[in-house]
Amino acid sequence: MSWRRRLTLALPYLWLAIFFVLPFALVAKISVAQVQVSVPPYTPLFDTQGHLQIDWANYKLLFSDTIYVKAYLGSLRIAALSTVIALLIGYPLAYAVARSPARWRSILLLLLVAPFFTSFLVRIYAWIGLLRPTGIINAAFLSLGLIDEPLKLINTEAAAIFGIVYAYLPFMVLPLYARLDKLDVTLLEAAADLGATPWRAFWSITVPWSLPGIAAGCLLVFIPALGEFVIPELLGGPDTLMIGKIMWAEFFSNRDWPLSAAATVLLLGLLVVPIMALQTIAARAEGRAEARA
């Protein structure tokens, strides 16, 4: 390999090694430190005599204090529910786009995916305006006489789940569409000729075919949802416990960097398997694309 190529490769490689991989080592290091009033606000890894100082107290606290345990379980539950709902909404959408006339497909897909790129905060803000007690939905229901007093729509776990589904729906639709678009329609025709009902053909041909898309879409929603902070903070209210909120509070309000670092390590631990699975699926898809080329 020529030196030019080496340089071209070294540039992004080194950058990501320094600014993406190395930081995780530091997170692990600081997670076994203790908070102290100093700059930076944690104890060093080696004391003045050069002895290694490793303290597992942060992890013990995270495993014993119910609020942290509840936050992890809450994150898992909310992320899982959001993923399932996003799949139930995203699948029909992706399917509808894939079955649309060819000239409409790319514009429809773009319309479904574009919101991902437009201001995340603004889109969550829009739902605050709709859901709050004096918001549009409650005002409409009240004026129609459907309810006597405003419903508690915002500051609930349901609102947080709803917000996550809304924000990450494009992540679900895209890989599903990519897969459904390549479905060989003659298989469905053959199934119909052989007497299968459309429903049967859907379950025994379309769904198995789209499984890689389902897996990729679910992982793309589940992984960021698990660490989500903004949505549970703005829509979820104080009772919605998610680990992202705890990390934010420990870091910014309590200035306990070591504890937030330990919480991060545990969150990463939960994410290792989903992220590896996602990379495997992506590598396989690339392999298929190369095989076709």
Partner: peptide, 18 residues
């Protein structure tokens, strides 16, 4: 690809520590 899916809160905290 990893930074794309990594929860932002993890990326943020770890970069700060760096």
């Amino acid at each position: 690809a990893a930074p794309l899916v990594m929860p932002e809160i993890i990326t943020g905290l770890s970069l700060l520590l760096l």
